[in-house]
Design a protein around this nucleic acid. Structure first.
Lengths: 210, 210, 210, 210
DNA sequence: GATGAATGAGTGTTCATTCAT
DNA sequence: GATGAATGAACACTCATTCAT
């Protein structure tokens, strides 16, 4: 996950690790390209290896099987997205709840660096493979953490509330990705996503007040 | 499922159509059983044909390909769910907005008659095949129709708002299905789904008032 | 004793139809030819299918996997050999013990209809796959039955004695096959095999007399 | 073959050879362990190298290919077994024929130091690779030498007789190994193996007397 | 129409072996 | 010499689909 940020310039010390890291990176990049170009249907281990410029044997040296490769891509993108979200929130640490939510929404929408087809394929694969739970865990725990902050004016969120809030937001974004909605990156869509979150939090608070 | 209860005894008039309808019903039922028993992985055309008690050739007489079969299952379940929703709403035609929303949520959650594994598999397949758009269309138009009703106190919903509302609700339910959440049919979860919808509608109205 | 022709596989379809039976025969014949031509190394499922003039898919319609195919060949040859042995013994029902043993030895040596390379490959495969036990069962039980005949002047053979007698005989023949000994079908070799069996039975009897 | 028994302590004189011998020993030991742990299926060159604690490249420095490695193991065990047989016979140089045969049988049965799974795997490999002839050569020549001894009261054994006697004995032991017979190391089994050899020698002698 | 035997392109995966470092 | 990353030919097996009967 954090390997990319490690210094790779210690050529003297560990040439092997540097080579291996480059190979892994090439494979992941090749996988993303295959996904972007042909979707999930074109995503075969041989195709990825060829695109990555490595042999199929090398691919299997680093990934136990096809699913492991898929999981690695999903995890990498997830981690990057969460990092972006965290950075956005840090930049808004003094902002209003709305500004913080908006920063989060924007970071999630802008994930995957514009590779929409690849993103769609990854989402499909994650759903089809049943990896959705693990993938959602960080998002949910993030929201739970936010919801648990008394400073934010929110009471503690229940298990069901955390679930509904995280899945409503992610599910909507997911649907927009899968359906390739043209308004995906529009301001109007972002506004509605923000409204979705804030309204729900509002609804929870009102109940607590009663 | 409901087709079996249709009169098949009009041998004189349309013997062929009656037989064909029974065959189609048997295939769909077999498909649902295979899905329920072994998930998407076990869903092969041969397995469905065997389970349905027809030959593989016969299956292809009624369904152009595997996807068509999948689509048919999804559509059948979708139609049944929408019928149930409509019935629920009819029963609540005089109720409050909340009671109407609750009726709708309950109808959707209770769809698929408890075949959770089959439902999960169908959802996965629909998502993986990119059929989600068509599947969501009726739900979205239903919500749009509701939103367009001036009597309900809601202003006209924008395209993005219809999208967000329908996908937030369905996405959350979908996630609960895919993740096999234990609280799926609990009252607490239903409450939160209702809150999700009402809060969002509330949020939209407040904006309109400004 | 009458363990002649059993169903080839329980999971796969039984060759009830004439066409299917012909296909199975073609596959088995193709397999034997591949074995004869290139030994165990050339024995790939694709090669067998091609040689048999059927598609690889058809092969798998009748044999669960590669081993099942191998087992089927071994069983077929085994059954034929045992039939030949039984026939030979029937012809010698009035003969001496020696003439009966000689008939049996000859039938076993002449099994596989002269396809020595195929026989060698099958033996290797059977040994390598650990199927030897099942394959030997009929031979052992046959010898046990012979040993149990009071008329033959032999006392009951112990478990170890049945094992040693059957494996000594078969092991010697096996070795001659595997090593491609030139004297395999010579009278001198047959004489020694007969001597091996008779001497051992003699040795057992002498012990019993003490 | 006999490398393990060579002195490895001449560090000064031949450091390279000493190191090489240790490496070879490590590889052979690793190979035996892999065989014992997972049978022939687990016997891959990479697995052996890892178990032996050397790189795959180093393994190929000492063994031309996988078969060479297999052959080396078989030869090592064979040599050890023959050494044990010779030692046993030396201890019985004044004994009866039976006591000498028994000593030999026991030495062969007890070969491989109780690594039954490894022994089985080696036997399978030897048979599958067609190395059986070379492996049997020493045994056969040993028996031939015994049979040629006029002092033993045996006439010269013919080529076929040497073959039958050696393969009958080894084939029976082999079968017991491959089939993992529980009575493998029992006294009853040993008795029968001894009887097998003595009876046959007896049978040969009687013929000569006629 | 119904059947089901036959098809075969295509897939994931293994593993003996090489060679640049 | 030692290393181990990389190679890629080869293989077993699947399953949607067709078509002769």
């Amino acid at each position: 996950m954090a390997k990319a940020s490690q210094p790779i310039d210690k050529k003297r010390r560990k040439p092997h690790q540097a080579r291996a890291a480059a190979t892994v990176a090439a494979i992941l990049e090749g996988a993303a390209q295959v996904l972007e170009a042909g979707g999930l249907a074109a995503f075969t281990t041989n195709a990825v290896a060829e695109r990555a410029g490595v042999s199929i044997g090398t691919l299997y040296q680093y990934f136990a099987d096809k699913n492991a490769l898929l999981r690695a891509i999903a995890e990498r993108e997830m981690a990057q997205a969460l990092t972006a979200v965290a950075a956005a929130l840090r930049g808004e640490s003094e902002g209003t709840v709305e500004s913080r939510v908006r920063a989060m929404v924007r970071a999630i929408v802008n994930a995957f660096h514009g590779r929409q087809r690849a993103r769609k394929a990854v989402v499909q694969a994650v759903l089809a493979q049943g990896l959705a739970i693990e993938m959602m865990a960080p998002v949910a725990s993030f929201i739970a953490a936010e919801g648990a902050e008394p400073r934010r004016g929110l009471g503690q969120l229940s298990r069901e509330q955390v679930f509904v809030l995280s899945r409503a937001l992610m599910g909507t974004i997911r649907a927009a990705v899968l359906e390739e909605q043209p308004f995906f990156k529009s301001a109007a869509f972002e506004d509605e996503l923000v409204r979705l979150v804030l309204s729900y939090l509002n609804g929870v608070r009102q109940l607590d007040a009663e």
